[in-house]
């Protein structure tokens, strides 16, 4: 799949992208003046943020603060909403994802997304995972088997379901379904993984599994996760960004942000003075 990408891949860690020279080695994704408006109403004020490779970044803030809107910009899911205007730049491998020529389908393959509700397709477990790879390129049965097994192993689901891969994905438990959805996303081999409150519909045990998975995936992926659970942000993330009223208030290393927030609004939110 790598070969057919139109999005440029890093050939060598030291290379910077041609022309603009904007990309450095320690950034996987960078937003510059990224703003979102629904019709006339601004949902996100222009903000800048850089995501380093192999890190987990948590986006926190009260409901309606723009964090999910921000997340959905990163793989252009906002394009599916009529009336939604995205401004600024999203630099990914030296290319602006928001530039007119950018192929949204290629971009989404490189920047995968997991949603709040576990939502397997009404297909078998095997077909759920094989769904993306099958659509994107021709694969032999053996290659496909290999991808399915690797993806399911990666989320720790393979041993639980290996004897019933033909069973419907909808017959699994909620936590298993969510891990299946993560496996489905991993099967197309993305670099960046966006997660929109991935554990808010799960029980504590499944939540713990998914959190462990996020840490594990961050070894070779850039993970960006929206969460309402501040303990979760503290547990899993390297960096945390706080959004409030459609504005990125502050972003920094998680420990620092939780112990010494620079902004008054962050401090108030963390101490529960407003929500």
């Amino acid at each position: 799949m790598m070969a057919e990408m139109t999005v440029e891949r890093p050939v060598d860690a030291a290379t910077t992208a041609a022309g603009d020279g904007r990309r450095t080695t320690d950034e996987a994704l960078r937003c510059e003046g990224l703003s979102v408006a629904y019709g006339e109403k601004q949902a996100l004020a222009p903000c800048d943020m850089t995501f380093a490779p192999s890190t987990v970044t948590a986006l926190i803030g009260p409901s309606g603060c723009g964090k999910s809107t921000f997340l959905r910009c990163l793989n252009l899911m906002n394009r599916e909403i009529a009336n939604c205007h995205v401004g600024g730049h999203i630099w990914f491998h030296g290319q602006d994802a928001l530039a007119p020529g950018c192929d949204v389908y290629d971009l989404r393959r490189c920047i995968g997304m997991v949603f709040q509700q576990p939502n397997p397709f009404p297909l078998s477990i095997y077909d759920n995972v094989a769904y993306g790879p099958r659509r994107h390129r021709r694969l032999s049965r053996a290659q496909l088997d290999e991808i399915v097994e690797r993806s399911l192993r990666r989320v720790g689901l393979f041993d639980e379901v290996k004897d019933e891969l033909k069973k419907s994905g909808l017959a699994l438990s909620g936590g298993q379904q969510q891990r299946l959805c993560i496996a489905r996303t991993l099967a197309v081999d993305p670099e960046v993984l966006l997660m929109d409150e991935p554990t808010s519909a799960l029980d504590p045990i499944s939540t713990k599994m998914v959190e462990g998975l996020m840490r594990d995936l961050a070894r070779d992926h850039t993970v960006i996760v929206v969460t309402h659970n501040m303990q979760q942000a503290e547990r899993v993330s390297n960096r945390t960004a706080f959004f409030y009223l459609g504005e990125l208030v502050e972003v920094g290393p998680t420990k620092e942000l939780f112990s010494h927030p620079r902004e008054r609004r962050t401090q108030d939110y963390l101490s529960g003075r407003f929500s």
Partner: peptide, 23 residues
């Protein structure tokens, strides 16, 4: 979410319709 998941995998609307929505 089912539709969004398919689109988020980099599939086109048509593929999403044929393989996810109609089934």
């Amino acid at each position: 979410g089912r539709r969004d998941s398919s689109l988020a995998l980099g599939l086109t609307r048509w593929e999403t319709t044929i393989h996810v929505l109609i089934p």
